[in-house]
Simulated assay, not measured.
Amino acid sequence: MLDISVSSFAKKAMQRREATLVLLLVVLLVPISIRSPNFLSVKNISTILNDMAILAIVAIGEFYVILSNGIDLSVGSIIAFTGMACGMVNESYPQVPPAMLLLIGLGIGFLMGLLNGVLVAYGKIPPIITTLGTVNIYRGFTFLLSKGTWVTAHEMTSSYIAFPRSSFLGISYLLWIAFIVIAVFYYFSRFTRTGREVYAIGGNPTAAKFVGVSENRIRVVVFLISGTLCGLSGALWTARYASAVNEMATGFEMQAVAACVLGGVNFAGGSGGIIGVVLGTLFLGVITNALPVIYLSVFWQTFVEGLIILVALALNTLSDQRKNTRLLAQRRG
């Protein structure tokens, strides 16, 4: 009896994308750690987590847009504009504390996300078309703001550059911010009405409307979340990498989408979870840091990310087909 229940629990656990990702991470880490014993050192793990912290924050924002059956391709450009704006403020007004710069980034990202959301919700422009437009508009704003120049490390204050690297209880502020974002939005998606409505709109918008869910409001909300988190990430990006360049975060939307899809988020909307997205981000981080260990150039990173998206989408499609087949069989039975 006990063996049957344990077997049933294990089978159900492995059907979840989170469990599969954990297993894949373990399988991936074994040969890597054999080739490079220092790969699993505390220092290297800390480096991987800090490298992936900003991606995790951005991927959570992308998660909500995909969950609502949309996509935000403008995340890299929002990061670039907010990062440049925060860098220039820091250069011109060095007395502004780092915490205020984060708030400035949040505010700018909020406004950019609001514009995306309004265009999608009330302009009735499909999300992919809207953000294909704003990705260039926001990147253009970045060049206009900076006039093509950069803000380099020696033009920024030491307190701003040191902020992401400062630690509390042995954990960097950057990781603490990522943990807070993960916790807040995990609660939001699981235990709030609006969070559940995002799932409803993505899964079955017609049925959601019949029970009183405002699709326009949810469209605006998810793009506000994405834009605001990208604004925060832009401020952190400039401080972490000690520079603000016009081309920063180019193509970053592909990494955010890869983390979501790898984490089991349905590209058609309606299903997925924050924990899966975080594990997908961690998986990407391990792969990126493992490339030099297995003697592959970092230039393979884009290829690997594209391959991961294709494989993950194929797995998601197969999983959906199996679920639909089981549902049809149960109805007929």
Rank of each mutant, 00 (worst) to 15 (best):
E62P: 08
V75A: 04
E91I: 14
D51V: 08
A53H: 04
S77N: 09
C86W: 03
I57F: 07
C86D: 00
M84P: 05
A56H: 02
L49Q: 08
F81L: 15
S74C: 03
V75D: 00
A85Q: 08
L55Y: 08
M52E: 14
M84T: 07
E62I: 14
L49A: 15
T82K: 03
L67E: 07
G83N: 15
I78A: 04
I78W: 04
I54F: 15
F81W: 13
V89M: 08
S77H: 03
L49N: 05
E62D: 10
E62W: 00
T82Y: 10
A80R: 11
D51K: 13
M88Q: 11
V58Y: 01
F63K: 00
A56F: 07
S68E: 10
I71R: 02
N50K: 12
V65R: 01
D72F: 04
G61D: 09
N69V: 09
E91P: 02
V89C: 03
A53R: 05
N69M: 02
A85T: 14
T82L: 06
D72T: 14
A59I: 12
D51F: 07
G87H: 10
A80N: 14
G61T: 13
G76V: 11
S77L: 06
N90F: 04
I57Q: 07
G70Q: 01
M88N: 02
I78V: 13
M52W: 05
Y93E: 01
Y64V: 10
I66Y: 11
Y93T: 05
E91L: 13
Y93G: 03
A80D: 12
D72M: 02
S74K: 01
T82N: 10
S92W: 15
F63P: 04
M84D: 05
S68T: 15
A53W: 10
A59P: 08
Y93I: 13
V65K: 09
Y64Q: 14
F81V: 09
Y64G: 02
V89F: 05
G83F: 08
N69K: 13
T82M: 10
V65N: 07
S92N: 15
N50F: 08
T82P: 09
A59Y: 09
L73W: 09
F63N: 09
M88H: 00
M84W: 09
A53D: 13
V89K: 00
G87N: 07
N50V: 06
V58R: 06
Y64K: 06
I78G: 08
M52R: 05
A56L: 12
T82G: 08
A80L: 11
L73G: 10
M52Y: 04
D72V: 07
N69P: 05
L73F: 03
V75I: 12
M84Q: 04
S77Y: 06
